[in-house]
Design a protein around this nucleic acid. Structure first.
Length: 431
DNA sequence: TCTGGGGTCCTAGGACCC
DNA sequence: TCTGGGGTCCTAGGACCC
């Protein structure tokens, strides 16, 4: 068998921890960070978890509970979290030649040829270094596959029967101890098993990670699909899910938001989708691709009982793949014009880019003289736009179609400063 | 009575992840 | 009053072709 080992390093309560780095008053108290539009709790401090606040719960359902316990509620500050993530990943990446940045707060490392190393100790060094250099607490799980590293990472958090202190290497546990732990993990908590499959598995008598590990991969593949088969094999130590060091090119780019209030006016929708189109265009240029098609969609609020529902979408194709903000804005507006109906109240809108090609793969347009000089100037203009907005803050330069007042935009009632990315938001020490 | 069959491409829907 | 946003993969089934 291979001597490879995988580590999963993740930030504890990541968004809350990012906030705590810059505001010590948040220590020791229940803290939650809300999703966009201040809708749901997407990050919780340990104290908030201890109050029984579940992941993803709508804020209005827990407002009173938090008030009673002097909890702190923050709007999400993705500018800050993305920058802290970048720093954290850079530190983690120094500990293995092979790193996959899996999400904003999770990174896999692969150790090949490290058999003479004490990787548990290595994990402790990662934890210490990240804490020292970024202020962020992380957990480290080590195992022979990514799925097992994930399970080990769970165990690295607090567990009454296992003293792991933030680092857990499955290889340090005697086999019976491992099985004992697997038997305690709900099958739905295994990476790759969501709520639907968990229910279906339980109906088949498979309740724990251990049950799944011992299940027959062939027959479960027939009842489910190949993804679950891989999960079972990974639980048994056979790596089936590769490490992805370089993220593959995006296949689609979505930019959408719920509105702060229900929107009736077509002009507001036009402004909103223009803004989302500009955001999508910037992401598109960042990924060095051009798009051939855009889908524009609107949506009413399906949570309101009795509210008339309407969820239309319009597709726009581009004769030549493009990454030009002006072209995308124009397309988004034309899409809204096609599907807008005045009798509804809209809650959400968005644009989706698809059918993407790498930039530079330039297909000449039939029946049109190529205007290379014009295109050259255009792409310099867009590069300048991106550079300016990157340095001075998103939205510093924008197209008039995106609007000035933006009355439709989302709520962010408790936003903290962009401590690490804006000069005027630098934390100031007091003597 | 009985109505080909195999291959490819595309799409929609359903599941998962954070 | 108030319910996030952004992704990926797999499969089944239909369209189409020969």
């Amino acid at each position: 068998m291979s001597r490879m080992l995988y580590a999963l390093v993740d930030g504890n309560n990541f968004y809350v921890s990012c906030e705590r780095v810059f505001n010590p008053h948040l220590e020791g108290r229940p803290v939650i960070v809300l999703s966009n539009n201040d809708g749901c709790a997407v990050a919780r401090s340990d104290e908030a978890k201890a109050l029984g606040i579940p992941m993803g719960v709508p804020y209005f359902e827990i407002r009173d509970l938090l008030n009673q316990h002097r909890g702190i509620v923050l709007s999400s500050n993705y500018t800050l979290y993305a920058d802290m993530s970048r720093r954290m990943m850079a530190v983690i990446g120094q500990y293995s030649p092979e790193q996959e940045v899996y999400s904003i707060d999770e990174s896999f490392l692969r150790f090949k040829g490290f058999q003479h190393w004490d990787l548990t100790e290595h994990g402790r060094r990662i934890r210490h270094q990240v804490r020292q250099w970024t202020g962020l607490p992380v957990g480290v799980g080590l195992g022979p596959t990514k799925t097992l590293a994930k399970l080990a990472n769970r165990l690295s958090k607090r567990h009454p029967d296992f003293k792991t202190a933030g680092v857990c290497n499955l290889a340090d546990l005697p086999p019976w101890r491992q099985l004992d732990y697997f038997a305690q993990v709900e099958v739905g908590d295994v990476w790759g098993v969501g709520p639907r499959w968990a229910k279906k598995l339980k109906d088949l008598g498979i309740h724990s990670a251990l049950d799944l590990k011992l299940a027959d991969p062939e027959s479960l593949r027939k009842r489910f699909n190949v993804v679950l088969e891989r999960t079972i094999r990974e639980l048994n130590g056979l790596p089936c899910i590769p490490l992805e060091e370089a993220p593959p090119a995006k296949k689609q780019i979505v930019s959408s938001r719920s509105f702060g209030h229900l929107v009736r006016r077509k002009d507001d929708l036009l402004e909103a989708v223009a803004t989302y189109a500009a955001t999508a265009a910037q992401k598109l240029r960042q990924s060095r691709q051009c798009t051939s098609a855009m889908q524009v969609f609107l949506s009413t609020n399906s949570f309101i009982p009795g509210e008339p529902q309407y969820h239309p979408a319009a597709m726009i194709s581009f004769p030549t793949p493009t990454q030009d903000t002006a072209t995308l804005i124009q397309a988004a507006r034309s899409g809204v014009a096609r599907i807008f109906r005045p009798e509804f109240r809209y809650k959400k809108a968005g644009v989706m880019l698809m059918d993407m090609v790498p930039e530079g793969v330039h297909q000449g347009v039939l029946f049109r003289a190529e205007d290379t000089e014009g295109e050259e100037r255009r792409s310099r203009l867009l590069a300048a736009l991106d550079a300016c907005n990157s340095q001075m803050g998103k939205g510093t330069l924008r197209f008039a179609a995106e609007g000035i007042g933006q009355p439709w935009k989302m709520r962010r009632g408790n936003l903290t400063p962009a401590y690490t990315t804006a000069w005027d938001s630098l934390a100031i020490g007091r003597a």
